[in-house]
Design a protein around this nucleic acid. Structure first.
Lengths: 138, 138
DNA sequence: ATTTTATTGCAACCTTGTTGCATTTAATGT
DNA sequence: ACATTAAATGCAACAAGGTTGCAATAAAAT
């Protein structure tokens, strides 16, 4: 369990105690470089209780540090937020992309802004989950 | 449990036995006029075993009669498919829209086709879940 | 250094969904 | 209409994912 002063600062900024659980979980998630499935977090950190991991992930989400990256699968994926996110609101304009070849889930930007309208409806927010072949597999 | 000859035909076309469970479940789902949460199906049909409902829903999905309409919630919603869907493939180009006022989930079409690209990626399929205010609440 | 307050671990629990097996029901052919 | 066949149902049991209450512990504030 190595100390990461930056992660510690990040937690304190969001008014969260910089406990070793949080530092470790955050290190695993941010070191993964793509959306990480819950089971992968568990495997990397088998010294922590399952409940503690759930609670840690929940507080990281509430604080706008990480977010869920669902891709219609049973298993939940998590990824670090952009700096735009806060305790109050998650603000993602990206797409959750699942590669059907390597199975990796990543947060990617569309080449240009996505806009659409639905007659009579006011659209406040939307999420896109896409599947296909990622850069590495192409 | 009233007989619906049309639903019976629909089931038989898709090579499914027209059992009373299926006729009832289908009547409830199609009569709901928007995506229906699983609990609502259960409440309407408390005489059937939970397992039977799950199995019924699964076979209706496999046959392309209904589909899941997820909106990032814990609870699963279901809606009837367009006639384009078959046992082989679900083919939806619609958006799953959740009204933050009345909480209803509906399948709606965008006013114009939605297209986007991600550099280096091949996009094979995508799903959009939107939240906002629906027609009735506007 | 002590107090305060949040976090952890544990056990227990809930919900959602699935499986195996014996029983029942719908469709098919006669 | 009747027997046969193949699929669907109910039940019990289970598994995965996630939550809650509470006592013990660790971090932050004084």
């Amino acid at each position: 369990m190595e100390e990461n002063i930056l992660l510690r600062q990040l937690l304190r900024e969001r008014k969260l105690k910089a406990t070793s659980t949080r530092l470790d979980v955050l290190a695993v998630i941010s070191g993964y470089n793509k959306a990480i499935p819950f089971s992968e977090i568990q495997n990397s950190l088998h010294d922590f209780d399952r409940v503690t991991l759930y609670r840690t992930i929940n507080s990281l989400m509430k604080s706008g540090i990480i977010h869920k990256a669902s891709v219609g699968e049973k298993e939940t994926f998590y990824a670090v937020c952009s700096s735009k996110c806060s305790s109050d609101s998650h603000n993602h304009k990206h797409i959750h992309f699942k590669c059907s070849n390597c199975k990796a889930v990543t947060c990617v930007q569309a080449d240009s802004a996505i806009n659409f309208a639905i007659t009579g409806h006011t659209i406040n927010n939307f999420e896109i989950e896409a599947t296909g072949i990622c850069v590495s597999c192409n």
